[in-house]
Design a protein around this nucleic acid. Sequence first.
DNA 1: AACGGTACCAACCGCCGCTGC
DNA 2: AGCAGCGGCGGTTGGTACCGT
Length: 296
Amino acid sequence: MDSSCSENYMYELRRGQWTLEEDNLLINYITRHGEGRWNALAKSSGLKRTGKSCRLRWLNYLKPDIKRGNLTPQEQILILELHSKWGNRWSKIARHLPSRTDNEIKNYWRTKVHKQACHLKIDSNSKRFVETLRRFWMPRLLEQVEQNSSPSSSSICTSTSEIDQNNLSTSSPQTEQTLMVSSVTSYSLSNKTENPNPSSSICSSDSTAMVFPEHLNLQSNPNGEIAYYDSSRQYNDCYHVNMSEFDMDFIHLDMQAVGPDDMSAPEFQLTEVDWMKDDELASTSWNMDELWHFRK
DNA sequence: AACGGTACCAACCGCCGCTGC
DNA sequence: AGCAGCGGCGGTTGGTACCGT
């Protein structure tokens, strides 16, 4: 056995699941010496792991301030927004979700969002899919924000300077529940008084357009409204949206209105009638009751 | 109860950019 | 300038829990 073989033997690396003992070793070592210098850490700590493996275990699992569990609707909206802005830049996105890891966000995207794109045979990075998310998923999440809103509810308050650099505002001082919505999100609301037909209470191509301008803070208030504050100004412009106006059972989706950039799935053109009739689509692609709480 | 399919997520892999020599 | 080592990032995989039949 030559020296390199014997060295490999002595430092035979472990792989796979971490044991409690390994976790404790890593935690104790980082508590004493701090994180960083991962290869040196791996050798000095007595762990038979690579530096990379130690780093990953610490950052994704052991670090004390990591938040675990389901993503809140606010967090989901933020992820969708930031992904539409930056694409698969998971670490960059994660920096705007305090205590969430890039790995967790990446997993969320692949298991929840990307899957929907696959069902619909749309490229999840296409503008078409982004638009679909905005028209279907976002209102659902907003609805949940509204339903879950209470003075004690959790909030996303990112206050890093990077947020400001990216034209995303910090939380408004008076808000209890705030998140950032970037400039590109837009929904269209109909005017019910002009259009008594409830089947078009939200639609994509007509009626009064509500566009989220830049620098908007979103909050839900006790009156069941979602409000968007423009904190880029010294005073706060306030846009109120009565979420009862959203009636997703009657969504009219005309994908042709999305834009010409991605015609990879030309057969995908949903109309109101299609939506209601297409059992497969309804049951597989967008029937995410646990997420959207479809209107009863 | 057993089995197969699905969802979830922790962990690994390979690439890339940065830094120090 | 070239090289090696390292850390960070995004993509992918494999194990396991869960659920329906």
